[in-house]
Every structure is written in structure tokens, then in C-alpha cells.
Design a protein around this nucleic acid. Structure first.
Length: 427
RNA sequence: GGAGAGAUGGCCGAGCGGUCGAAGGCGCAGCACUGGAAAUGCUGUUUAGGGGUAACUCUAACGAGGGUUCGAAUCCCUCUCUCUCCGCCA
């Protein structure tokens, strides 16, 4: 959520900044609602004040044994007027809030202007795609005999699920352990185990609700919980309704969770293979920091995610997403795109964002600023470090040989007890 | 799943229809005392919104939402969470 003050005192400038990301702010509507809100607020407070003074007077009179009937007559009509004013105020505030919750974050000045992913800007590259002396196969093809089974998953559940078996399942698990160890032992993150089901408040806090309900899986029973679309939701919500001291900061969390996404509206996209699934594993990095540090933190967090790819020796590039491509809650986002020989393309494997105070305002995640002594909003950031399923795909495709064997990246060997190569066993 | 108890400020805890944003204690901050510290004393110490240059002032919040009342932390209803006992369970 944006600072409501921006909508009160800098409405036109705010609209201009939002226009850069293709969002049209209805300034007329907001202006009208704001004036009504302010007038109703003043009127309500006046009436409340009258009620309070009268009630106190009645209390005193009663204590002194005086007749309170004349005082009661005075306030007779007050209650109805107040109720009327309060309900009008509630209605308009609800209307304003609904509107505000649907407004996306302001893009940071350094976020390039653009409409689509082709307007994203490449920041840097690491590694060279390997020159293969044979026609590379994609992971679906390579995995067919090695344990990636989309058909049996379709039988168990439906489309966009996978069953992984044998050495590939083990590799998948090794990747997760490797990532967690790297971030906890070398990058200073605290490992978290958290619920995979969350309530609506948590999703509102990080910005998935109210606008993106159709992207989520929701339970249909008595408990109205949602499956998490990313660990960002439970982890960032750890800071909800809290005020941290300077010494507590920065908060650095890493969590490995499954992620569940309905992928509504993505029909026809990436239907082949493991790229876009309803369920996938992700190791997520979350940092909650003081506002003045957040852009340095974004660079740092992105480097932490890049380190995973470097250790796995997977070629990638870093993209600065344009204003038209950043997420609803983000002010600035870097995507990491890994080279996939099977597609001859760089494909997204991590997304690292600074949300500034957009989530923190919804969450009321604050810190006590020692210079002002006041609680102030924190900045929240997160990034995938990395999407495990897509990393598995990248390893399979980048480490294949012409026989369809998959070499094990040396960084993973300690996690696989010296396994050197995965040879499809056909079982 | 059944029965019962509870939720008050950073923490503990009193209040059970009016002068209560809330006693008291702990913690924290400042000042005094001290060579320094401890102990002690004094003062201060929730958050959000509105008005005012400011001193200050108004409004709201005692788990959440609704109701009764001139007036609710206090009475009533619903929900959430915590604890105890029984049952079930990885």
C-alpha cells in the first residue's frame, strides 16, 4: 500500500509516477472521496466530543445526587446523529481502503521504463553457454528415462505436476540442501520452517490479496486458508505488527518450502516440462532492513542468489525488470535468467525485489528509529535463491552429454556421497 | 471431538458501568547522589489520526467484530487465540 499521505497531498505527482508503470490513477475519484472523508471525520469527532462531555457531566451530576433528566434530554438526539456520521465515515473509509489496496507500488527511479519483458535491461552476464558437439536435448526428453514423469503425475493429480524418481529426486533434494547451507553458513541467513497454509491477513500483508486471489489455491473446508504461493508470505509476515529495535536489524531469513500457484491465465505457456507447475520447491531469501539500506541490500541479496548459480557453474544473466514487468508490490526487481541449452534461451530462475515500505505498511512492520524515537516502517526484500525445480532443469540440461548422462556439478558432490554421473536406468 | 478457565501497556498485574489511556511492580530513558558503578531518590516512558509555530489539545484503541447504555476495559452475543482435563493421533 502506498502512503495515504501521497494520495492526499501529492496526488498528481503520484499519478505521474504510477503512469510510468502503465497504471492510471483515478485522481478525480480519490480527490472526491478524500474531501468527503475529511469532512465526515471532522463531523464525527465533533459529535463524539459532545457525547463525551455530556456523558461526563451526567456522571458528575449523578455522583452529586443532582437530577440528571435535563442533561439526558440534551443528548437525546445525539446518538442517532453520531451513528449516522460514523456509518457514513466507515463506508467511505472502506471504499478508500479497497481502492488503495489495488494500487501498485511506485517504481524506483532506477527501474527502467517499459511495457513488456523485451524492455528489460541486461545488467551483466556470468559464464558462457557450453559449446556442445551434439544437439542438446531438453529436460523432458532427458528425464523421460531417468525419473521425470509427467504422465503419472497427471494421473495422480492433473496437468502441471511432476513425479520425480530415483537419482533425479535425490539430485533435487541435494540442490535444496546445498542452497540452504550456502545461505545459512556463508551469507548469514537464519533458517526458518514455516506453515505452508496461511490466512488472508498474511496474504494481504505481502500484497497477494485482495487483487490476485485467482492466482492462489484456497482450501474449501471450514478453515479459509490458502496454500502459500511462495515462502515470502509466511516469512515476511514474521515481522507483521512488530516494532524492532535497531539491534534486531537487519533480519535475514531463508526458508525452503513448496510453492503452490494456480497459474490461472497462463494456459498455453510453458506447458512442456517443469518450468511452470502448480507445485514446486523454492529456497527463498527474505531481508527486512532499515529504509536507507534497502537498495544496497537488494544488490547484496541478488549477489547471494547469483552465488548459487556460480557455484553450480551455470551460465546466467541479470536483468533489471522494466516498469511494465515488475510485480505489483515491487519498486525494483532483478531477475536472474539461467541458460537452458534445450531451449537455447535464458530463462528466469530467480526474482529479487525491493518492496520498500509497500508491504511493511500493510504489515505494520516497523522499527524504532533512535534519532526520532518513533516507530517507522521498515523495508522488505526477497529473492529466490533459487527455484529448485528450475535449477534441476538447468543442471540436467547444462550437464548432459551425448549419451544422455548427467554429470554432477562439483559443488553438489558432497551432498550426493561422491556420485559423479546420473545414468538413466530406464526403470 | 467433549468439558472448563482465560486474553488489559515492552513484561507481570489490578480494575468488573462514570472522574480509567488505565493503580502497583518490573524493565527502559533522563536527572540527582558517586572518583566510577551498584543501591537509592525524582521525572519520564503506548499507538494511530485531526488541529496548533509551540506549550498543548481533540478523537480512537483494554484479543477481533457486533450489541445494550447518556456513558463500556467492566454487561450481552459471535469469532479468534492461549491454557487445563478427557478422547484421538505422526
Amino acid at each position: 500500500m502506498l502512503d495515504p499521505k501521497l494520495l492526499r497531498s501529492e496526488l498528481e505527482q503520484t499519478a505521474a509516477r504510477l503512469a510510468r508503470r502503465g497504471y492510471t490513477l483515478d485522481t478525480k475519484l480519490i480527490g472526491t472521496l478524500e474531501i468527503r472523508r475529511k469532512n465526515l471525520k471532522i463531523r464525527t469527532q465533533e459529535l463524539q466530543n459532545q457525547r463525551n462531555t455530556h456523558s461526563k457531566a451526567i456522571g458528575h451530576a449523578k455522583a452529586n445526587g443532582q437530577d440528571i433528566q435535563p442533561l439526558l434530554n440534551e443528548v437525546a438526539s445525539l446518538g442517532d446523529k453520531l451513528k449516522q456520521a460514523e456509518s457514513e465515515l466507515d463506508a467511505i473509509q472502506a471504499q478508500l481502503l479497497t481502492f488503495q489496496l489495488e494500487i501498485p507500488n511506485l517504481p524506483h527511479d532506477s527501474t527502467p521504463t517499459g511495457n513488456r519483458d523485451s524492455d528489460n535491461i541486461e545488467i551483466r552476464r556470468w559464464g558462457e553457454p557450453r559449446q556442445l558437439a551434439f544437439e542438446p536435448r531438453d529436460h523432458v526428453d532427458l528425464g523421460a528415462e531417468g525419473g521425470l514423469d509427467f504422465e503419472v503425475a497427471a494421473k495422480l493429480t492433473g496437468a502441471r505436476f511432476v513425479v520425480i524418481q530415483g537419482q533425479l529426486a535425490r539430485l533435487h533434494r541435494a540442490l535444496t540442501q546445498f542452497m540452504l547451507d550456502l545461505h545459512t553458513q556463508e551469507h548469514g541467513y537464519r533458517e526458518i520452517y514455516a506453515p505452508y497454509l496461511v490466512n488472508a491477513d498474511s496474504l494481504r500483508g505481502t500484497g497477494q490479496l485482495p487483487k490476485f486471489e485467482s492466482d492462489l489455491f484456497k482450501l474449501s473446508g471450514d478453515l479459509s486458508y490458502y496454500l502459500i504461493p511462495t515462502a515470502e508470505v509466511p516469512i515476511t509476515n514474521l515481522a507483521r505488527d512488530r516494532i524492532f529495535e535497531t539491534n534486531d536489524l537487519p533480519l535475514r531469513y531463508v526458508a525452503h518450502t513448496p510453492c503452490f500457484r494456480s497459474e490461472a491465465g497462463s494456459y498455453g505457456k510453458d506447458v512442456r516440462g517443469m518450468i511452470r507447475q502448480h507445485q514446486f520447491e523454492k529456497v527463498e531469501l527474505v531481508q527486512i532492513v532499515r529504509p536507507e539500506e534497502s537498495y544496497a541490500t537488494l544488490e547484496e541479496l541478488t549477489r547471494h542468489a547469483e552465488t548459487v548459480l556460480q557455484r553450480l557453474e551455470l551460465p546466467y544473466r541479470v536483468m533489471a525488470l522494466c516498469t511494465g514487468d515488475i510485480g505489483f508490490a515491487s519498486a525494483k526487481t532483478y531477475d536472474l535468467e539461467v541458460w537452458l541449452p534445450g531451449q537455447r534461451k535464458y530463462r528466469e530462475i530467480s526474482s529479487c525485489s525491493n518492496f520498500e515500505d509497500f508491504q511493511a505498511r500493510r504489515l505494520q512492520a516497523r522499527w524504532r528509529n533512535p534519532t526520532t524515537g518513533k516507530p517507522e516502517l521498515l523495508h522488505t526484500l526477497n529473492g529466490s535463491g533459487l527455484a529448485v525445480g528450475r535449477t534441476l532443469v538447468a543442471v540436467i540440461e547444462n550437464y548432459q552429454d551425448e549419451r544422455g548422462h548427467i554429470r554432477i556439478p562439483s559443488a553438489l558432490k558432497p551432498y550426493l556421497r561422491g556420485l559423479e554421473v546420473i545414468i538413466p536406468d530406464g526403470r
